[in-house]
Amino acid sequence: MAANAEAHQAELKKYLMVFGALLVLTAVTVGVSYIPWLAANHVLAIAVALLVAGVKGSLVACYFMHLLDERGMIFWILALCVLFFITLLLLPVVTSSEVVAGHADKLYGVGK
């Protein structure tokens, strides 16, 4: 019983540590967006912001939602979901390369 209570204490401690990490990462992502040279380098800024968001999201999913403790089937379902999600994210690529090269500006006025 005592061991059990200890394990529970450890669980609580883990949540609070993840909470701390999330707060720090929030500060980081806001902080780096104020760095002028990073903001000027847009691709890098996007990469950093999404990386931080990805780490934060994984922390929430793994520890708050206990995904680390889950097994089996739900992983496959989520993997399927993520795959289709990525397919969806390809929509812009699909759309912008849709127009036969050289006619983009004439058709939509958005080509470069």
Binding site: F85, L91, S96
Partner: peptide
């Protein structure tokens, strides 16, 4: 969890729309 999977697709579609609109702006 299944419900959340479908939510991922909902917000995924909107994120994707965001990227598309931004790239095309």
């Amino acid at each position: 969890w299944l419900f959340l999977a479908s939510e991922i697709m909902l917000f995924g579609a909107l994120f994707s729309s965001y990227v598309l609109l931004r790239v095309g702006a």
